[in-house]
Nucleic acid binder design. Structure first.
Lengths: 209, 209
DNA sequence: GAGACTATGTGAGACCTTTCACAAGGCCGC
DNA sequence: GCGGCCTTGTGAAAGGTCTCACATAGTCTC
């Protein structure tokens, strides 16, 4: 009945697009107008064929003999990644880590905007964290629905993370960036990405000595 | 002449070991003595066969009919990952991000210990950041060799990151955790892992709407 | 405007990773 | 100690990803 969907693009390809996008932003800042897959590949430490094949999932963005127009390709990738708009993001956890995230200036200009901060500590609720008033985590699901928020960042201790994630899912969140050092469970259709610096360090220490 | 090396274990397998280790630490804290691959897999949202095959690269750690002894497997994974010891880590960058990292309590107890902090800002050099005196980044390579440091964390702005990484490599560092939002180039044999929260968010925003 | 050069987009094949499915081995109750 | 039950460790097969290499199409020089 409906048209057949394109075969889904592999997630591993999606994962590389933000890397390409980041490199293109730097190239543009450097004033470079055109970039060949070979040169981009060199910069990123990968093969040019991989870049070309990745991009080919979404269209033909290059010019044979020339390469890619930096600005055009950047705009195309933004569209593909759904960041040709600004996403509001909820931050849960107003401790040291939440503090650092709330003050981090790198979200604006790359598609994201922290719009509210939650904590469950009565000492903190109602206080300010930078430009935010800290909201009561008990209101999490209701507030998320009210603000129509789809993305959240979790910066709470490991033992609170699963409960927070459950509340986020109840509130309609579909994408979670989890700084808590624990693997959480979510229903199908909800995406989770993890940031645990120790996991990265441990992965590299395997190769040491 | 020398004995043939075992076929190298795929890096993707190495990347999962810290996840297993983290889950085992939680299981142990919960008082669980034994865990079956099936139950661990459920907790981590993966297949039990993958866990068993991953572990089989390093030995036979389980008991048929029973599962794995939590403490024993945890110790074995620590040994495999070379974290049955403590690694000293250098932190470069004493800004907001460096501050948050220096104060993060999660390194101790998981194999790592921040042992020195560098910055290139004359206003900061000589001041204190928590328990650290901030050292002059100009002395990076010499100091790293003196202290025999193999692992570093980069928390400087993107435009300074490549120069810092080059200094780290000169100083003998073999593993770099890079918080700067830029892909850096390193010689073969040096490992880099990236933490850029925006990259993670962008990857998930593809699936939204 | 013709020829030399360059870089894309892409099938085909090589290579890598995951899953399947089962033999082998260990526990438990009676 | 025997039968039933359970889970590991692992070849083989299936599935996924990357690289190769080239036809195609565009640029640039003269």
């Amino acid at each position: 009945m409906g048209m057949l969907p394109d075969k889904a693009v592999p997630d591993i390809v999606i994962g590389r697009l933000p890397i390409y996008l980041r490199a293109l932003a730097h190239l543009e800042a450097e004033g470079q107008r055109i970039i060949a897959s070979k040169d981009l590949a060199k910069r990123l430490g990968m093969s040019s064929a991989q870049i070309r094949k990745d991009l080919s999932h979404f269209g033909e963005f290059g010019k044979q003999g020339m390469g890619y127009d930096v600005t055009y390709l950047r705009d195309q990738l933004r569209t593909v990644l759904n960041i040709d708009r600004r996403w509001d993001v909820a931050l849960v956890g107003a401790g040291d880590l939440g503090h650092a995230i709330a003050y981090y200036g790198g979200f604006e200009g790359r598609g994201f905007h922290i719009s509210c901060v939650f904590d469950n500590n009565p000492q903190k609720i109602g206080r300010r964290l930078g430009r935010f008033e800290i909201l009561d985590a008990i209101e999490l699901p209701a507030k998320l629905r009210e603000l129509d928020i789809r993305i959240a960042i979790v910066a709470v201790p490991a033992n609170a993370a699963q409960a927070v994630v459950d509340d986020l899912v109840t509130g309609g969140v579909k994408a979670i960036l989890n700084y808590a050092p624990i693997t959480v469970t979510v229903p199908a259709g909800v995406h989770v990405q993890y940031i645990d610096p120790v996991v990265h360090l441990q992965r590299m220490s395997y190769y040491l000595e």
